[in-house]
Computed example of a mutant assay.
Amino acid sequence: MSGLNPCESFSKFDTSKIVAFSEMYPNDFSNGERGCLLGDLTVFYHTVKVDDKFKNLGGITDLARAMVETGTHKTFPLVYRVLKLALVLPVATATVERCFSKMKLIKTDLRNRMGDEFLNNALLCAVEKESFLKVKEEDVMARFQAFKNRRGNIF
């Protein structure tokens, strides 16, 4: 991802790193696309290096924004796809890390025989805590009350 850095007039722009990055994702790039990517990166580098709209960019987020504003995301779709993948990757990784961290807290040695459905439901409650805080207790009680006639009311 560091090869995509546009800082200091693309001084850290490295086509070999970017191609190696695309090779880590074979489902997103076919062999033919990876072959075209090297040529596209070279042309892209020489195009944006002389364009004033691509000067003084702070990072790859600014590069993506500048590509969309100038329309170069349509001219260089493979470069833009690599850029989008590099932007999404930290978010996706953080979400997975957070889920595994919550699972480590929920599934302890004492709860090791927990079934998949119960574990999934418990993880959903732990990971999506903000969503569950919006649910009213009265709504939950009314739903359980509607399952089956009880001797007394929960309310």
Rank of each mutant, 00 (worst) to 15 (best):
L83S: 03
P26S: 10
T72Q: 07
L105K: 12
K49T: 11
L41Y: 06
F29P: 00
V79Y: 04
R98K: 05
D52T: 05
N56Q: 08
L89T: 07
F76K: 13
L57R: 09
V43E: 13
T61D: 15
F76N: 12
L87F: 10
K107L: 05
A66P: 03
R65M: 05
M67K: 04
L37P: 08
F44K: 04
L89D: 02
V91P: 12
L63E: 05
N56I: 03
K104I: 11
T95S: 13
G71V: 08
L87E: 14
T108Y: 06
T47M: 05
D52A: 06
K55I: 08
P77Q: 01
R81G: 01
D109E: 13
A86E: 14
A94I: 09
K102F: 03
V91I: 15
M103C: 11
M103F: 09
N27W: 07
E33D: 03
L83Q: 04
L38K: 14
L83R: 02
K55H: 09
A66L: 04
L57A: 10
S30E: 08
V48H: 05
L41G: 02
L41S: 00
D109N: 14
E69I: 09
V82C: 07
L89E: 09
H46M: 11
V96Q: 08
M67Y: 06
F29C: 00
A86W: 12
E33W: 05
T93P: 09
K102D: 00
C99L: 15
L83D: 04
G59W: 00
D109L: 11
A92F: 09
M67T: 10
G71K: 02
F29R: 00
V79A: 03
T75H: 09
K55V: 09
L38R: 15
K55L: 10
L37T: 04
G35R: 13
R98F: 06
F54T: 06
T42P: 07
F100M: 07
V96L: 13
L38P: 03
P90H: 13
H73G: 07
N31W: 01
L38W: 06
D51Y: 01
G39K: 00
V91E: 14
R65T: 11
I106R: 06
V50N: 00
T47F: 02
F29L: 01
C36L: 12
A66S: 03
I60L: 10
M67L: 05
V48M: 08
D40C: 01
G39L: 00
D52V: 04
K74L: 06
L87C: 15
T72I: 12
S30T: 14
F44T: 02
E69R: 11
L85R: 13
S101R: 09
N27R: 14
G39F: 01
K104D: 06
K107N: 12
T75V: 13
D51K: 01
V88Y: 13
L87G: 15
P26F: 04
K84F: 09
E97S: 15
D62I: 06
V96A: 11
D28T: 02
G59F: 01
V50D: 02
D109M: 08
L57N: 07
V82R: 12
L83A: 04
A66V: 05
